[in-house]
Design a protein around this nucleic acid. Structure first.
Lengths: 349, 349
DNA sequence: CGGCTGCTTGATTGTGGTCAACTTTAGTGG
DNA sequence: CCACTAAAGTTGACCACAATCAAGCAGCCG
C-alpha cells in the first residue's frame, strides 16, 4: 500500500485528486500549505509527493528545497502541480530536483499516469543502489586504514539522484559537504556576467566534487550541473573533517587530487592564453575522448564544446566541419568519433 | 683567514690567480678539473669558489649544480671564470646561481675586487638570516602542534638565495622538496611551444612553492623564477611528508592553500575565455596592486604584464596609455600607480 | 658616445565573434 | 506511428579586436 502526500491550497483540486488516488488504492495524506506539507512529509515519509507551486506560508520551491536538504526525504519522488506553463518555471523546478510537472488543468489519467511511472521508476532506482555499493567497498578498502569509519559514514547516508541538466549546486551556495559520484557525469562551470559559461571541470564515477571548497569557509565558487542522469553520495562536512584528522592517508589523497587539478587548470590557462581556436577545440575533443567516450563516440552538444573551449558555438560548428573535411573525425548530430587522434594531438597553432 | 678554492684546468691562469690571492692574505686551494674541485669543496668548505666553465672531467655548470644540491656547500659564493662573453652563457650561469662572472682576460684588480665584494656580501647575508628566523618562529607557533619538529627541520636547512631573474626550477625538473619564501617574490610560469610564456602564479613572503607537485610523483609542471632578489627555505620532501603524517593540521592547511589556488585559477580561466583585453589587464593590475605594491606603486615590466594577462606587449602598452588618458592610472616607465581602482574593478567588457 | 634594452606608436592583417537565415534533429502529443 | 514544433546545428556575411610587423624613441650601461 503506497502513501501519497498532496500539498495544495485550492480545496477543489485537492479533493478531486484525493478521490482519484484513493479509488486507485493509494493512501493519501493532505496539507493546504507548504509548511504543514513539509512537516507531514517528514513525519510519514510518503512514497510520493504532489505539490502546488503557488501557496501561502511556503511555496512549492521552498518545500522541495527543504525536502532535498533532508536526507530522509531527499529521494521521495516529487511532482509539481501548477498552472504555470512558462518554460523558465519548468526548468527551475527540474533543476531543483522535481521529478515531474503536471500543468493544470489535468485529468484523472494524467494524474494516475504520472504517479505510477514515478513510483515505478523510484523502485527501480532503489534496487540499483544495491549494486552501486560494490564500488564503495572497493573504494573504502583502497584507502587501507579508516575503512570501517568510511563505510559507516557512507552507510548512514542516502544517495542523491540528479536528472540530466539538474543543478547540484549554484555558485554562491554554501556547501553541505563532499559529493562522490557513483555513476553519471557532472560538470562544474563558472558563469560570466553576460551569461556565457565556461566549463571548469568534468567529473565521472568515483570522482569527488566540492573538495576544493570543503575546507574553506566559503561558498561554492562554481556551479555544478548533471550532464546526464547521475547519482552521488553526499558525505557531510563534519564527518569528512573527522576522517581527515584521523587518517593522514586520506588527507594525502585529497592533496594529490587537488594538485592534479591545479596542474590541469594551469595547462588550460596556457592553452586559452596562446592557442588558436582550432588547437583548443582539438584539445577539448581529446580530453573528452579520454573521459566520456561511449562506444568509441563522444556525445556532446556544440554548446558544451563551446563552453569547454571558451569559444562561440558557431565557431565550434565551423571548426568541426573543417576537421571532418581534413579526415580528423566523423560527426553526426551530437555524436563525434575521432579518426585521427595523432593529428589532433599535433595540431599546430 | 679566508679560504678560496680555485678550479681551473689552465695552469698559467691558475698559478697567477693563486699568486695574487695569496699575496692578499687568502689561503688558496686548487683543483685542475671539476670532479676533484667538487671533492675539495665538500671537504674544506671554502669561503669562496672560483671556477672555470670549460674543463675536463666535469664542466663548471656541473660543479655549480652539485654544490647547489648539497646543503653544506649551497651557500658558498661562486664565481665563474670564463673566456665566453656570450649573453646566453652568462644568463645560464646566473640562472644556476653563480654569484659573479669574470671574463678572461681579467687583471689583478678585477679578480680581487670581485672576490672581496662577494665575500663581504655573503657575510651580510649571514647576519640577515638571523632576522629571518623570527618569521619562522611565528609560522611554527601558528601551526600549534608540530612546532618543535618544524623548527628542527628548518634549523637543519640552509637558506637558498636567488638573484633577480634567476630560475628556481624549470618545468620538467624533478622536485627536491617544498620551498618557503622568506622575502622577495617568485613567479611561476608555463612556456608555450612558440616561447611565449604565461605567468600562472605570483608568490611572496611566507608563501609555499611546489606544494602542488610535492605529493605527485611528477616533475614540476611549471618554471619558477625570481622576480627580484629572493631568499627561501627548502624543506626536503621526506621531512614534509613526515610532518603531514604526524600533524593533520598541517595537511588541512595545505589543502586550504591548494583550494584557494584552484579558485583563483578558475577565475582566471573564465577571464581568459570571455573577457576583453582591457578587462583582463585591469584585473591583472588590481591583482598586482594587492600583492606587490611598493610605496603605492606597482613596479612591473610590460613583458610581465603581457605574460600575466596573456596578451601581446604592444597591446599592453597601448591599453595602458588608454587607461592613462581615462584617468585610471599614472605611469612612468615600469612604475604604475592606480588612481581609480573603483573604475578598474567595474571595467566593462 | 654608441649599443642595448625596454617602451611606444603606426599600419596592416587575420582570426574569430556576432547577427541572421536556414536546415536538421529530436521530443511531444494526437 | 506520424506530424508538428521547438531546439540544436550549420552556413554565410560582416566587422572588430588584438596580434604582428615595423619603425622610432627614451633611458641606461660601459
Amino acid at each position: 500500500m503506497k502513501t501519497i502526500l498532496i500539498i495544495e491550497d485550492n480545496i477543489d483540486i485537492r479533493e478531486s485528486c484525493i478521490e482519484i488516488l484513493e479509488l486507485s488504492g493509494y493512501t493519501v495524506l493532505q496539507a493546504d500549505n507548504g509548511k504543514s506539507g513539509f512537516d507531514l512529509a517528514l513525519k510519514h515519509k510518503p512514497d510520493l509527493i504532489l505539490c502546488d507551486i503557488m501557496m501561502p506560508e511556503m511555496d512549492g520551491y521552498g518545500v522541495l528545497y527543504l525536502l532535498n536538504k533532508n536526507d530522509e526525504t531527499a529521494d521521495i519522488p516529487f511532482i509539481f502541480l501548477t498552472a504555470k506553463t512558462d518554460r523558465i518555471d519548468f526548468r527551475k523546478g527540474m533543476e531543483m530536483g522535481a521529478d515531474d510537472y503536471l500543468t493544470k488543468p489535468f485529468d484523472d489519467m494524467d494524474l494516475l499516469h504520472a504517479v505510477e511511472t514515478r513510483i515505478n521508476k523510484h523502485l527501480r532506482q532503489k534496487t540499483y543502489h544495491g549494486s552501486a555499493f560494490e564500488t564503495l567497498e572497493k573504494l573504502t578498502s583502497a584507502t587501507g586504514k579508516g575503512m570501517d569509519e568510511l563505510k559507516a559514514l557512507i552507510n548512514g547516508r542516502k544517495v542523491k539522484q540528479l536528472k540530466k541538466k539538474q543543478i547540484l549546486y549554484y555558485e554562491g551556495d554554501s556547501l553541505s559537504g563532499l559529493y562522490m559520484i557513483l555513476n553519471g557525469n557532472i560538470k562544474t562551470m563558472k558563469i560570466a556576467e553576460d551569461g556565457r559559461q565556461f566549463i571548469t571541470g568534468l567529473y565521472g564515477p568515483d570522482d569527488y566534487i566540492g573538495l576544493d571548497t570543503l575546507l574553506l569557509e566559503e561558498a561554492f565558487a562554481e556551479t555544478a550541473e548533471a550532464v546526464e542522469d547521475t547519482s552521488l553520495y553526499l558525505l557531510p562536512k563534519d564527518q569528512v573533517l573527522n576522517l581527515l584528522n584521523k587518517y593522514p592517508e586520506i588527507s594525502t589523497q585529497f592533496i594529490k587530487i587537488l594538485s592534479n587539478n591545479i596542474h590541469e587548470k594551469e595547462e588550460q590557462l596556457l592553452e586559452l592564453a596562446y592557442h588558436s581556436v582550432r588547437k583548443r577545440l582539438a584539445r577539448v575533443l581529446l580530453r573528452l575522448n579520454k573521459k566520456v567516450k561511449q562506444a568509441d563516440q563522444i556525445i556532446v552538444s556544440r554548446e558544451e564544446l563551446a563552453a569547454l573551449a571558451g569559444i562561440a558555438v558557431e565557431t565550434v560548428s565551423r571548426t568541426l566541419t573543417d576537421f571532418k573535411f581534413e579526415g580528423l573525425l566523423e560527426k553526426n548530430g551530437n555524436q563525434i568519433q575521432l579518426l585521427n587522434t595523432e593529428k589532433l594531438v599535433k595540431m599546430k597553432n
